[in-house]
Amino acid sequence: MREVSVKELKNTATQMRMKVVDMIYKAQSGHPGGSLSAADFVTACYFKYMNIDPKNPRWEDRDRMVLSKGHVCPIQYACLATLGYFPESELDTLRKEGSMLQGHPSMNKCPGIDISTGSLGQGLACAAGMALAGKMDKKDYKVFCVVGDGESQEGEIWEAANTAHKYELDNLIVFVDFNNLQIDGTCDQVMPNGDLGEKFKSFGWEVMEIDGHDMEEICATLDKCYASKNGKPKCIYAHTIKGKGVSYMENSCAWHGVAPNKEERDQAMEELTAQLV
């Protein structure tokens, strides 16, 4: 864990958002909405909490990050590039032929990716496997996992939730990115999830409900997760806004997987720059 102020983390999250918008603009392809909704807690993990070494991406004692909702990888790529896993110029190659930055994350192409994801509902099981290996080897690394509310409609999420409970994986910290939007509409329209926090609780998890854009609350909650060694896997049920930080993208299904044009990109950059404190 590093000493970083909340203010600094807020600014970093804004800078990550700018990189996300810019790389998706340059690629003219990608998923801005979810990348922006997950930006604050992913930034907090990478820049304050995760015990990692960009020069040794496969270091066996490192903390792991699994994006079960793999399509939001632009936010992860922005963090990894900024931390020095690869040159920032690589961000301009997103989704282009030969790039290490695939449309969905590939662990054998991009340093810092702990598992390839992209098919929804599958990441939590992998994260549970990593956390289980940590328990078996008596290592104290953490495994972070970002799960979408939409993808929680997949049954495998709940199979994995069972496994994490059975094996007492309190080294597993899951963020549920609760932005209530998926491709065809709101989650409530497409397939109501009910209260996902209550669901995880009933699976034996320790659940903490937060504002997923309040950096202070994100950090306080992660501190709590680190202190809690009660055998329960952790679920941080984060209320978020899809497209957060860019006015015209906020709460809009249309910005799930669409790239901004030049004017839209410039407006986003202007708005985000104004959010730096």
């Binding site: 992998c126 496997g129 289980l132 496994t163 059975k166």
Partner: peptide
């Protein structure tokens, strides 16, 4: 000893858990 895992009747999850374990050298 800790070399045995039983995930119950949940084969899809079994594959994912195994993948996660394998990334850690198992």
């Amino acid at each position: 000893k800790n070399q045995y895992v039983n995930v119950g009747i949940a084969e899809q999850n079994a594959a994912g858990v195994a993948a996660g374990l394998a990334t850690c050298g198992k």
